[in-house]
């Protein structure tokens, strides 16, 4: 098992296909409305007519596939009143269903929408980094599924050595809040965090 597991996203390869989402749903039998991994579409650009009546545009779009980042300083763990939300010795942030009271306070705080409430269980659920697969030496379902090899995982330090430690593109929040174990190679469309150039344009899908 890894000590500090992290996800790595190569935005140059992500087409927003959402195979990771479906692999996750299938692996964990997620019911409708619960998506442990979500692909956000960040889109921007304007259309302006010139004097000849022809449009000019600077449209861009890119996708970001985000699940739980199993943060170093997870706000969900910090704020959970019951300690049900915890970071294990394997670095994985998960919910102890024997304790979770279903207050949804972790959901309020997490800037990645990682903890998700199950009406059926009356408790929170979230990405467990496919702990069972990792124990068997297999990749998490989303990583093994990625058709364009945009999604990887590994030991944070090793990934950081290989790809740098950048993880700041819009619309992600400042990493100072939770210190996410996420590394990103931005693509040429990527806007810096806090940019007002675009917006999440698929709220209905995530």
């Amino acid at each position: 098992m890894l000590k500090r597991p992290a996800f790595y996203i190569d935005m140059e390869a992500c087409t927003g296909c959402k195979t990771c989402m479906i692999a996750c749903i299938d692996k964990h039998d997620l019911p409708k409305g619960i998506l442990w991994r979500r692909v956000s579409e960040y889109t921007g650009g304007d259309w302006n007519k010139d004097g000849n009546g022809k449009y000019h545009q600077n449209v861009f779009a890119y996708y970001l596939s985000i699940s739980c980042n199993h943060c170093e300083n997870p706000i969900c763990v910090r704020s959970c009143p019951t300690t049900a939300m915890h970071k294990g010795p394997d670095g994985i942030v998960s919910v102890d269903h024997d304790k979770c009271v279903g207050c949804r306070y972790c959901e309020w705080g997490c800037p990645y929408s990682a903890p998700q409430y199950s009406e059926g269980l009356g408790k929170m659920t979230k990405c467990d980094f496919c702990r069972d697969y990792q124990r068997e030496g297999k990749s998490p379902a989303c990583v093994a599924a990625c058709p364009n090899r945009a999604l990887h995982y590994g030991e944070y330090e090793e990934l950081a050595d290989k790809y740098g430690s950048e993880n700041l593109v819009a619309p992600l929040p400042s990493p100072n809040i939770t210190q996410p174990n996420l590394i990103i190679t931005p693509n040429r469309n990527a806007k810096p965090a806090g940019s007002q150039a675009g917006k999440i344009s698929n709220p209905e899908e995530v």
């Binding site: 009143p81 019951t82 304790k99 979770c100 009271v101 279903g102 009406e119 009356g122 408790k123």
Partner: peptide, 8 residues
């Protein structure tokens, strides 16, 4: 969601 766990 699970009031019985409120003790925790």
């Amino acid at each position: 969601g699970t009031p019985l766990h409120s003790v925790f």
